[in-house]
Structures are given as C-alpha cells and as structure tokens.
Design a protein around this nucleic acid. Structure first.
Lengths: 177, 177
DNA sequence: TCTAGATTGACAGTATACTTACAATATGGG
DNA sequence: CCCATATTGTAAGTATACTGTCAATCTAGA
C-alpha cells in the first residue's frame, strides 16, 4: 500500500450515521454525565444540593479556610463557575466567607454549622446515588469500569481546561485569616 | 448478624474526604465529560461547532425533515435546550426551518448546502478528537471501556431525564412538509 | 361533532462550564 | 524602594442542560 509522508494520509470518508454518534466515546461520556447528574439530584432531592455544590462542600470541609482559586484547582472547576457556586452556597448559609488578614484580595471559605450538618446528613444519599449509577453492571464490570475511568481521567488531566491540582489544597495552611 | 426490616439499616458513617469524591463514579463521569468537550472543541476549532451542534447536524443529515421534538429524542437532549441549539445553527445558516403543511405547530429541519459541507469537512477532526479521548489507554482497554460504557448508558437510559428514543426518528417520514 | 387532553415550539428561570476582561492587590527584580 | 508582572475575585458573554409554563394546534373519545 502506498504511503505518503508529511500530511496525514487521506483515508476513506466515514459514512455519516447516527450509529457513528452513538458509539463515539464523546457521546457516551455526555450521556453518562446526564444520567449521573439525574440520579444524583433524584437521590439527594431532600437536600437541594447539586453534585457540584456537594463537591465544593466536601472540599471546604476537608480544607477549612481555603480560598476560591485553590478550591477551583482542588475540585477541577473553572474559577468563574465556582464564583456562582460559592454565591449560592453562601446564600443558603451553608458556608461563610471571611476576608484574609494577610491578603486583602482573598476571601477564605468555611463551612457553617448548618453546612456541616447538611454535609453529614447527605452522605448516605450520595452513596446511594453513586451505587445506582453502576448498578446495571455486574460487580466485576463495575470495578473494571471504575479502574479504567480513573486511569483515563488521570492520564488526560492536562487535556482539560481546568486540570485537577489536588496538591494545591495544602498551600493555604500558612494563611490563616 | 441482626437485620432490621423496614427502614434501611444504619451503616457506619463514611469519612468525608476528597478521596471519596475523586473515586466516585459521578465525579469521574463529570471529569471525563469536561475532558471530552475540551478535546472536541480543540480539534474542531476550525469549524466553530460544539459537540452538541455536531450531533444535531448529523441527526438532521440522517433524518431530513425531522421536527425539534423528535430530534431531541434522537440525540437525547432536552427539548428546551435544543431550541437554542437550533437557533444558533440557523443563525450560522447551517440548517433551515420550514413550516410543515400538515401540522401548523411543527417546523421541519433540513441541512443547508453549507451545513452539509461543514458536516462533511468536520468528520476527520471529530474522529481525531474521539481517538484522542481514549489515546492514553492500551487498545484492549479502550475496547473494554467502550463496551462497558455502552452497556451502562443503555441500561441506565430510563434513569436520565431525557431518555434516548432512536426509533422516534422514523415517525416523521409520513409528514413531509 | 365538540370538547378534554395531548403535543409543539417558545419563553422564563436556575445551574453548570467555559471565555475574556478588569480593578484591586501582592510580589519580586533591579 | 519602585515598577513590571502575577494573582484574586468579579463580571459579562456564550453554550449546554434542566425545570416550569404558556398559547396554538392537533387528536380522539363520548
């Protein structure tokens, strides 16, 4: 078979079918994300918390006094998006924002009492949701899928616009407000 | 082991850690979706099409004269969301909307000439994007992951708010405008 | 046939998720 | 010490993705 170097070899155009969409990884990831959010919201409806708001609460619980920029790195959200999330959590009185003494630009984040209560109480519902997402698969397949997904997300970390930087969470420890 | 019936057995509360978030399927699906969109947009930047707009174009190409409600079932989007997507595709002149003669409520969707051209030309970029998403895995693992994901999305179809109804696409065939 | 109920597209509202831009503030090199 | 540069939070703009609701229209049962 002849093989040109330089520009990529023009291959036969693939047929444009819905099947090509349905079997594409990108489509499957989007679908699975839709399904996951739907299940989460349903299981946690009593708490009026979205998946993102839940993740933010956990991170603030784990890193009290973290600032918004570091929080965005720890849960891999965009900084701008996170601003709105924080606003909503504050308006629900689940978190508190206090200005830092050391850096006038920074607002440090803490769980409120009611935030800590909600977080503690929502855990069983969150776990139920996570189980339900994988429920249709055989237990061995669940493990396989989780393992491969974990690998893939880790290896593709830099490909996303907001890479996860879990280690950033430690940097606020010297900056108590 | 004692076992109460009625309410679920209260199990030991799990520790609240970021690791619990990072290993949860819901988190991995969200991350993977972020990464997939980022790769798609990067590879297809020359065409100024989002993944959703691309899927809509393919579906309209495959089912010319489909209406918005049926389109939403075929690509598993919410009907309201799809309205905006259609508007944008129309404003870019990639599709055309024509009122149906048989049903005054319905607007039928068709690819424009430039829509067909864009769709044909974008295919190689889309394929490159789909490959890149799974690139970090060994080929055998890519197959395994895709297989499990396909199963899971299919078995969880009804759990999402907007289940896929691929067969709905056929119903417009009697309704030519 | 006539009307109760369903469907269709549109709109408003909420919540991610990203982009770029900006002012206030911090920091480090010269 | 001072200024170029970087960081922080915020805001405006775009695009999903869902919830409702609504009016126009269609359809089917009594």
């Amino acid at each position: 078979m002849p093989h040109r170097t330089g520009s990529p070899m023009p291959s036969k155009p693939s047929p444009i079918t819905m099947d090509a969409v349905y079997t594409a990884p990108g489509y499957l990831f989007r679908r699975m994300q839709q399904i996951a959010v739907s299940i989460f919201v349903e299981e946690c409806s009593a708490f009026d918390l979205t998946p993102v708001q839940y993740a933010a609460l956990v991170a603030i619980h784990t890193h009290p006094g973290i600032d918004a920029t570091r929080l965005s790195a720890v849960i891999a959200f965009d900084r701008s998006t996170l601003g709105n999330v924080i606003e909503r959590l504050e308006s629900k009185a689940l978190i508190e924002r206090k200005p830092s003494r050391e850096d006038k630009r920074v607002k440090l984040l803490y769980l409120s009492k009611s935030g800590a209560t909600v977080l503690r109480d929502i855990m069983p519902s969150v776990e139920r949701a996570q189980l339900r997402m994988l429920q249709p698969l055989k237990p061995a397949d669940r493990k396989t899928l989780l393992g491969l997904l974990t690998q893939l997300v880790d290896l593709n970390n830099e490909a996303s616009r907001v890479p996860l930087r879990a280690e950033d969470a430690l940097e606020h420890l010297g900056k108590a407000g």
